[in-house]
């Protein structure tokens, strides 16, 4: 059974009085533990699709299922609870809480889950070592480099051991070397924790980390042909 299924999802925006369709009947299935890349030109609707998959935006039509259960008609509070327990987010701008140390930022989702302070610390330290910021835990985001902040963000996304991580352009604010390191890290940790990752990017270099690469073009999903050549046939 798929972790998440997106069926015939549409989404339009009104821009300057004209209706602009960004998602025109999207079908997508995410399997447990896979690393899926979503590519496409700027403004093609990658973020919109990610937001819908991350349950922070509503489609105009179509439906989403989680472990085979339709999410249609679920209340905002129910979706919040689902995100709280099983979703992780990595944002392009990191979105760390500036007044909190790296340690507190990473443990924030664990605090929401009500884990004991001891359990939080154990998991935070283990993750911090895994992402290579073990010595920076007491620093605030302002005292970290862009790459270090994104590592904190990845650790935060992974802290609750989510089933699905939504990563929107996680390397856009990073230099080339750091970007590759961060994606490599995200990939290896997702394998380690069997976490599904849906990552939006317009960076073609990331394709080699993806189990599956899908392209969003004019509101429709396509299997990236280049990626098919590299990794074999894939489905959307």
């Amino acid at each position: 059974m798929s972790l998440m299924t997106v069926e015939n999802v549409t989404k339009s925006y009104r821009v300057g009085g004209a209706e602009q369709t960004v998602l025109a009947g999207i079908d997508l299935s995410l399997q447990a533990g896979e690393f899926v890349g979503l590519v496409g030109p700027s403004g093609c609707g990658k973020t919109t699709l990610l937001n819908i998959c991350g349950l922070i935006d509503q489609p105009d039509s179509g439906q989403l299922s989680w472990h085979g259960q339709s999410l249609k008609g679920e209340s905002g509070a129910a979706l919040t609870e689902l995100r709280r327990r099983t979703f992780g987010f990595v944002f392009q701008q990191f979105n760390l809480i500036p007044v909190m140390s790296a340690r507190d930022n990473i443990s924030y989702p664990l605090m929401l889950l009500g884990l004991s302070r001891k359990a939080q610390n154990e998991r935070v330290e283990s993750l911090a070592n895994a992402v290579g910021i073990g010595s920076l835990l007491d620093k605030r985001p302002a005292h970290l480099s862009g790459g270090q902040r994104q590592r904190v963000a990845i650790a935060r996304a992974l802290a609750k051991r989510p089933e699905l991580i939504i990563a929107d352009e996680p390397t856009a604010s990073l230099d080339e070397e750091t970007a590759l390191t961060v994606v490599d890290l995200l990939r290896s940790l997702s394998r380690e924790f069997n976490t599904t990752v849906l990552v939006a990017t317009h960076d073609a270099r990331l394709s080699r980390w993806c189990d599956r690469l899908i392209r969003l073009h004019q509101g429709h999903l396509q299997v990236d042909p280049g990626h098919v050549e590299l990794f074999g046939e894939a489905t959307v």
């Binding site: 922070i56 987010f89 979105n95 929401l112």
Partner: peptide
């Protein structure tokens, strides 16, 4: 927005 996305209730 980030806090809410992570599942923090309103």
């Amino acid at each position: 927005g980030a806090l809410a996305a992570m599942g923090t209730r309103n």
